[in-house]
């Protein structure tokens, strides 16, 4: 069942004081997330993936388009934030800035329990801490006494405390060491299996996206340029940008000489007409300047003239 849908969502940010000029951070993005599914949103810096996360969490309002949760428009649902945030939660990238340094872990976790009026505070705290594999005595600790991985577990514990339906995880592992990263990814998988909660996994890492996600959408300069099942998309990428990401991923069997020039990341203020990836694309042709639509082919979606 469809749990969360984005329909042609656009987000503009004003540039400068008068706000006459605008940057389009998110450009007509549509996708669906289903029950107990993990949906990955992949992109590099400036691709708009984090902005989408903030739109879903209601931290920003879309310029146009609709976000629909459980059949209802999110802007309407947000009139009762308590109810919305009981079902929709978030985990952020930086576990060091996510915890207020002056508060104990217990205080940090208790607040949502109070706000959402969840009974039996102590019992629930014990439950969520054991779910994220932290000892109960962590509640007495201050953030600086915990390591990065432990802090991220605390943040995850907070996000599941209300038993939400969907959790937006914005780069949950990118600031963590590799040895910790894998265990956090496994924790996300286990939470999905145990509580059938859906995740939107925002990341720049193709490998970890494929590891846990069911579907992947690749973003470039505010648009989704390819979407498909994790296996198809990674094993057989269609869009030249996805191919570039795929070839840039580390591989012990590949020497340095094989990677070509990859060009500069896009400048959102001065995007070219048509396809935004054109300046970096090895297959670019004149027609790319006027082409800008999603093509659906064999159940896969790709925004590239090559598949017309």
């Amino acid at each position: 069942m469809k749990l969360l849908s984005l329909v042609k969502v656009v987000k503009d940010f004003p540039l400068g004081i008068l706000g006459r000029e605008r940057i389009r951070a998110v450009d007509r993005v549509s996708f669906d997330v289903y029950d107990s599914a993990i949906f990955a949103l992949i992109g590099e810096s400036g691709s708009g993936k984090t902005t989408i996360g903030k739109l879903i969490l209601g931290l920003l309002k879309p310029t146009s388009g609709e976000i629909i949760f459980n059949g209802q428009n999110v802007s309407k649902l947000l009139e009762d934030p308590e109810k919305y945030y009981r079902n929709v939660q978030g985990i952020f990238q930086d576990p060091f800035s996510a915890l207020n340094p002056v508060k104990r872990i217990g205080q940090f976790l208790e607040r949502p329990l109070k706000i959402f009026k969840i009974p039996d505070v102590k019992k629930r705290l014990k439950e969520v801490l054991s779910e994220v594999e932290l000892p109960f005595d962590s509640v007495e600790k201050y953030p600086h006494e915990l390591s990065g991985g432990q802090r991220q577990r605390v943040v995850i514990a907070r996000s599941i405390i209300t038993r939400p339906k969907i959790i937006l995880a914005d780069e949950p592992t990118s600031m963590l060491d590799v040895s910790i990263k894998a265990s956090i990814l496994n924790l996300i998988l286990r939470l999905r299996d145990d509580y059938s909660v859906s995740f939107i996994h925002v990341t720049h890492d193709l490998a970890s996206a494929k590891y846990i996600s069911d579907r992947i959408a690749v973003m470039y300069a505010g648009q989704i340029i390819e979407e498909g099942y994790a296996r198809d998309l990674v094993d057989d990428p269609l869009h030249p940008y996805t191919k570039l990401l795929r070839s840039a991923a580390p591989d012990p069997n590949k020497s340095i000489a094989k990677i070509g020039q990859t060009g500069e990341p896009p400048d959102l203020i001065a995007l070219p007409n048509g396809c935004a990836f054109k300046p970096r694309c090895p297959y670019a042709s004149k027609e790319c300047s006027s082409f800008d639509q999603m093509i659906e082919k064999d159940g896969r979606k790709v925004r590239c003239i090559l598949y017309r």
């Binding site: 390591s147 991985g149 432990q150 590799v178 040895s179 910790i180 990263k181 894998a182 265990s183 990814l185 496994n186 998988l189 890492d205 193709l206 490998a207 970890s208 494929k210 590891y211 846990i212 994790a230 296996r231 990674v234 094993d235 795929r246 991923a249 580390p250 591989d251």
Partner: peptide, 26 residues
Amino acid sequence: RALIGSLPRIGVRYHETKLKGIHGYP
């Protein structure tokens, strides 16, 4: 060994190979 075992290699999915990670902290 543990470090290499916890690297997500491209093309691996969780039900094929489970990444191990290293329990505990430095």
